[in-house]
Write a protein that binds this DNA or RNA. Structure first.
Lengths: 242, 242
DNA sequence: CGATATGTTGAAAAAAGTCAATGGCAGTGG
DNA sequence: CCACTGCCATTGACTTTTTTCAACATATCG
């Protein structure tokens, strides 16, 4: 579980330029010349499910872009309870705070087998110093993280409906174009750590969705099959009523 | 209430350079020469309590730095309910998203009479283009907003204790060195919109704090008097027990 | 194939929400 | 200056939701 597998040390020129997530990722606007700086510096990593990419408090030496899988960002309280602050999906960047603070703020744990690119912080800083083209994507990333946090506060926190509707909203929010009809599978404990509810309550909410044919097992053990449209419709009518 | 009072159009050179919140604000690291760009562009505004600084969806033409008072950032749901996503205090920057999106994400409303500086977005963008010195403070601001959102998710959201402890944590988090022993006074409805609880529940929680001498009226109608140390101690022992 | 994790379900207890009545304060207008 | 009005806060009684605890089922992994 703690093993990390380094697939290959690529040269940035050939791999990053062609990377599938490049459009949505950090290096979308770089030019040919800029990629020379990445040469041999970006590593391509695989992690199994449940692996820790980094711990809160660890020295922030790398930024990561997620190519496939999903990551939970966790914060542990003094009393040992945990809270999940965000779920990252392909295209997202992880560890941005390394650009501003010496250490990571959260613990990053994989929810499914990961493919990610590990970029030394120093390289990002240098690129950012030497070309103006990295700044906009970086601002976009900061904004994306903040917008996601705001959405969780506004939609998922308590007072925004009963547990059942909040679980439904969470599933809908986790849906991505990346895997249509599929949503990353969360443990009851994880749902609890996102919504601030007891795992039993999460179980009951999922039960209702399953019975309503809105949720089912997927072929892939790390994902659920979700009827996104029907779910959205249910939520819309529910909101209307309220 | 909708009136805004423009105190004075200063010239950036003389006023911004000497501004009390400059150290913690956007322009901390600028040099003499950079201030020439600010000349006559930064306005000094006063708002009464309860005034709207900008509406969600409005064109994001300005960034604001808060010099005194407090601002709530509000998001309204489809059903008319509101959620408060952050409370800004002196030194904070407001409307950062204007650098990345055409419109503001939240509605900004004053909780007490405000003094703030209004900076045209274009000026910030230009300064940022022409000097590398603005980038770090901007990154810091993005990070500060995100760190605050994370803290609210982790400490204030449901599942992190009963209403009473969450209200206590909120008060503690709103305390600032700016006004030692004082905390911005929130209406019960606002506390509800932050914590996702009913105003009546907030009232009962405040009642307990008042009876424990941890909370009292202040001379200033817009603030509470809070025994910060005692409050922190109460919370610490409570956490320990749990 | 058993052992441990994780998920499900029921019943009781606790927390918070709702509803309604009351009280207090601020600002308004006689 | 006082009474009136409207808004916000407080409090109690009752209802609903959610948690908790416990038992049981199911799946996963060695």
């Amino acid at each position: 579980m703690r093993a990390i597998i380094v697939n290959s040390v690529n040269n940035g020129y050939s791999n990053c330029k062609r990377c599938g997530v490049r459009q949505s990722a950090l290096f979308a606007e770089l030019l040919e010349e800029d990629f020379d700086l990445l040469h041999d510096q970006v590593d391509d990593l695989d992690y199994p499910a449940g692996a820790v990419v980094y711990h809160a408090g660890a020295h922030g030496d790398w930024l990561y872009t997620l190519r496939s899988g999903a990551i939970k960002l966790v914060r542990y309280s003094a009393d040992g309870s945990q809270r999940i602050l965000r779920i990252l999906r392909p295209g997202d960047v992880c560890g941005l705070e390394a650009l501003v603070r010496p250490a990571y703020d959260h613990t990053a744990i994989s929810l499914a087998p990961l493919k990610l690119c590990r970029i030394p912080r120093a390289i990002v800083e240098r690129l950012n110093r030497e070309t103006p083209r990295l700044q906009k994507p970086l601002f976009e990333r900061w904004y994306a993280a903040l917008a996601e946090a705001d959405a969780w506060l506004a939609e998922l926190a308590s007072g925004q409906g009963d547990v059942k509707t909040r679980v439904a909203r969470l599933l809908l929010r986790l849906a991505s174009d990346d895997r249509p009809g599929e949503v990353i599978r969360l443990s009851l404990e994880d749902i609890g750590a996102i919504l601030g509810v007891a795992p039993e309550s999460a179980s009951r909410a999922l039960g209702v969705l399953r019975r309503g044919k809105l949720l089912a097992q997927s072929d892939n053990r790390y994902y659920w099959r979700v009827d996104t449209e029907a779910l959205a419709a249910t939520l819309a009518s529910h909101d209307q009523a309220a």
